[in-house]
Structure formats: structure tokens, C-alpha cells
Design a protein around this nucleic acid. Structure first.
Length: 182
DNA sequence: TGTCCGATATCCT
DNA sequence: GGATATCGGACAT
């Protein structure tokens, strides 16, 4: 099996392309020398200043969202509802505060595959939190992505989850991509 | 299927 | 100082 780490160019592409492309890629996590990996099963695109569901809507630029403004592949991790860390990767190049949220993964355990659905559960499983905010996934030895020689078929597409606060129009954009358990 | 609620960093007034 | 949030679990219906 070949495994090729995702590079800057892979992230510095249009965000919807990256979001779709990340489904079927692998998240790799190195925890004190022990390696975990998980296939990405669901993503969502957040398209920056013009997207009312984005943290960078209207060009907002606070300390929290600064990683989104950096080069593609920068990790953006933040806390919601006081207890859930959410994992995102910056896309579309430096200065464009767009990104992709990782909503679900598939892991291999005891010879069988298991889906972990929900962005807060993904980070809990992979032990990702504020410590990883701002790191560069194209060079980090803590967290990175790989493409493996595996065909992913049947990617579905639909509205994003949990963004009703952004209004009906933005909540309805079909910017979520996923594969289902088989 | 629906309602409720935990727990807190961050943002805005 | 007050409101809110890219959620998840529990429990009732």
C-alpha cells in the first residue's frame, strides 16, 4: 500500500473540492510514538467571509479564527458548547479564511470497521484539542493526512449540520460530503 | 421524534 | 457582564 501525505497544494484548492476530496483520505495521529489512523467519512466546507455559517463571516478576524487565515493545511481547532473540540483544516490559500470541518471517521478495530459520527466524537477519539490549534498538518509529526491507494465511491452530498443560526439560505447550501457505513 | 441540558471559551455590548 | 455556540447524551413521547 502506498500512502502519500497531503501537501500544501492539496489544501490550497477551492474549498468545496478539498472537502469532497478529503472523504476517503486518512487522518493520522501520532501520540507519543503510537500511531492511530482513521479514514475520513464526512466533511463540511465553510467558505469564509461570504458564508454566514463561517467563523470568518463578514471578514471577522479574531485570535480564535486566525488559523483559518493561514496557508492551506493549517489546523483550526475550537471549542463549542463548552465541551466539544472541533477539527478543521484551512483551505484555499493564505488570506482566504476558508476551511473544512471533519465530521466523521471510520476506524479499524479488532478486524472490523467502525464509524465514529459527530465532530466532537472524532476529536475525542483521536485526542485532538486546543494543543493542536494552529499547527501545520503538512509538516507536523502530531497530526497529518494521507491519501492511500483506495477507491472511494458513492460520496453523497447535502446540507451542513447545525448551522441554522446562519439563516435558511446558508443552512441549505449542499456543502457536506459523506460516505455511509456498509 | 422531540425536548432538555451540560459546561465554558469566545465574542460583543 | 451577558449571550452564544460547526454538539452529544439522556430521557420522554
Amino acid at each position: 500500500m502506498t500512502a502519500e501525505r497531503l501537501s500544501r497544494d492539496d489544501f490550497n484548492r477551492p474549498t468545496l473540492h478539498v472537502a469532497r476530496g478529503l472523504v476517503g483520505s486518512y487522518l493520522v495521529r501520532n501520540i507519543k510514538g503510537r500511531r492511530m489512523s482513521a479514514m475520513i467519512a464526512e466533511t463540511e466546507a465553510y467558505k469564509g467571509p461570504r458564508d454566514a455559517a463561517s467563523h470568518a463571516f463578514g471578514g471577522r478576524r479574531t485570535a480564535r479564527v486566525e488559523p483559518l487565515y493561514r496557508d492551506g493545511g493549517t489546523v483550526y481547532v475550537y471549542l463549542v458548547y463548552g465541551m466539544h473540540w472541533l477539527l478543521n483544516f484551512s483551505t484555499a490559500g493564505a488570506g482566504n479564511p476558508e476551511g473544512v470541518l471533519i465530521r466523521a471517521i471510520m476506524v479499524e478495530e479488532k478486524g472490523t470497521s467502525r464509524f465514529i459520527v459527530g465532530p466532537g466524537l472524532v476529536t475525542r477519539y483521536l485526542q485532538i484539542d486546543k494543543r493542536h490549534d494552529g499547527i501545520d498538518a503538512t509538516t507536523s509529526n502530531q497530526l497529518w493526512l494521507e491519501n492511500r491507494d483506495e477507491r472511494v465511491r458513492g460520496i453523497k452530498r447535502g446540507p451542513r449540520v447545525g448551522v441554522d443560526y446562519a439563516g435558511a439560505y446558508w443552512a441549505a447550501r449542499p456543502w457536506r460530503f459523506w460516505i455511509e457505513a456498509r
